[in-house]
Design a binder for these strands. Structure first.
Length: 385
DNA sequence: TGATCCCGCCACAGT
DNA sequence: ACTGTGGCGGGATCA
């Protein structure tokens, strides 16, 4: 139905901008918002941040604050304290957070390598297998759907799935991409591919890339990231800068302006002002349609293959960088350990990771020799099959 | 035209 | 029922 006209006359709107309704995307970018956010809260005496406070001070809707807060939290700058409230940790918390990410990744890699745990199942729905509703002519599936157990599992599924797709986790996995490999310049397409594992329809890719833009923008405003081009091609890409002790982000001077002359950013409290015109009702329609589809595809997915839709681990070794050994290859692997290690190690240019890997390696070796001494298994390690 | 990415609907979670 | 969160992708802007 007809909503209010999209251009409701709004209070306190800068004449200049309202006259020639020049819409500037940049003025409202997430990166800029983040800069202002940091300028606002990265100072002494701040320990608690209220979302409403931030939203109103920055002149944006809450939704945008969530975006920022989620990525800030994923690098340790913030911590959720309670509903609507975050605790400010500051930039000094970044190194530890990054280190933890490195460790996580090293651990994952270790497991993938030695335990062959890449059971990864991507979170996409590229399975075109009958896009129509599943043929379940047997009514028994329907009854089972109403069972408490089903609902419980369904809930778990949702929770897990949601977490898997959260901006925060995506941020961490994105960062791992940089922190754990040497070519510290990655295009977002590339990143999306790595994070997605393998094979995905363009729709999933597009969505992922959109999110990566969001993330990259706030990381850039923190000076953890920088936009450049890939060395070879002219493709735009991002370069990891890492944390350089100094609070490198520019303490935006316009914050002062914002403070004094109200709303440099946003210009409105209710975001109803000079926005991109859009047919409201159509948007709603689209929604309905979209969600109807999504829902059916979910049901289908869940029914068809119970655990489908999960993505184990941050990202799969889609690039084939990791030597994979199957579990039944025990004996062979045992003899190759040293070689494998030296083969593998070079892919870690990063000293921290080298050390970590060495650490795991030592642990594993001592464990292994212990086991093999008690249980001499020359070439017959696989006989128990 | 392809790269960017703002915007806000609405599903799901929490009270 | 009502509020807090935040996934998601259409389509406007930018280069």
């Amino acid at each position: 139905m007809s909503d209010l006209p999209p251009e409701t006359p709004k209070l306190g709107l800068p004449l200049t901008s309202s006259l020639h309704h020049s819409y500037s995307q940049k003025q409202k970018s997430l990166g800029l918002l983040c800069t202002n956010f940091l300028a606002l809260y990265n100072r002494d005496g701040i320990e608690t941040i209220g979302l409403d406070d931030a939203a109103s001070k920055l002149g944006v809707e809450r939704r945008r604050i969530y975006d920022i807060v989620n990525v800030l939290e994923s690098v340790g700058v913030l911590t959720k304290r309670a509903k609507n409230q975050y605790t400010w940790k500051g930039f000094s918390a970044i190194p530890a957070a990054l280190k933890e990410l490195q460790e996580e990744e090293a651990k994952d890699t270790f497991h993938r390598f030695y335990l062959n745990e890449n059971v990864k199942v991507s979170d996409d729905e590229d399975d075109e297998e009958e896009s129509s509703s599943q043929p379940h002519s047997s009514s028994q599936t329907d009854t089972s759907k109403s069972s408490p157990i089903f609902r419980f599992l369904q809930n778990r599924y949702f929770l897990y799935n949601r977490r898997e797709k959260s901006l925060g986790l995506l941020t961490q996995n994105f960062i791992k991409l940089f922190v754990c490999s040497e070519p510290r310049i990655i295009s977002l397409d590339e990143a999306a591919k790595l994070l997605l594992g393998d094979a995905h329809n363009t729709s999933i890719m597009r969505t992922k890339v959109r999110r990566l833009y969001d993330i990259a923008n706030v990381l850039s405003s923190m000076n953890l990231l920088e936009k450049t081009h890939t060395l070879d091609s002219r493709k735009p890409a991002f370069k990891w800068l890492g944390y350089n002790c100094e609070p490198t982000f520019t303490l935006s001077s316009d914050l002062m302006q914002a403070e004094s002359k109200k709303r440099v950013f946003g210009t409105d409290l209710t975001n109803v002002s000079v926005k991109r015109t859009k047919t409201h009702e159509h948007a709603t329609e689209r929604r309905m349609k979209k969600h109807a589809v999504a829902e059916s595809s979910y049901n289908q997915t869940f029914d068809a293959h119970g655990s489908r839709g999960y993505e184990f681990g941050p990202f799969s070794p889609a690039t084939g960088t990791y030597p994979t050994a199957s579990l039944e290859d025990n004996s062979k692997r045992a003899f190759d350990v040293e070689n494998l290690v030296s083969d593998y190690r070079p892919s870690y240019q990063n000293q921290v990771l080298k050390d970590l890997f060495a650490h795991y390696m030592d642990a594993w070796k001592s464990w292994y020799s212990e086991v093999t001494q008690k249980n001499p298994l020359p070439n017959t390690s696989q006989q128990h099959h």
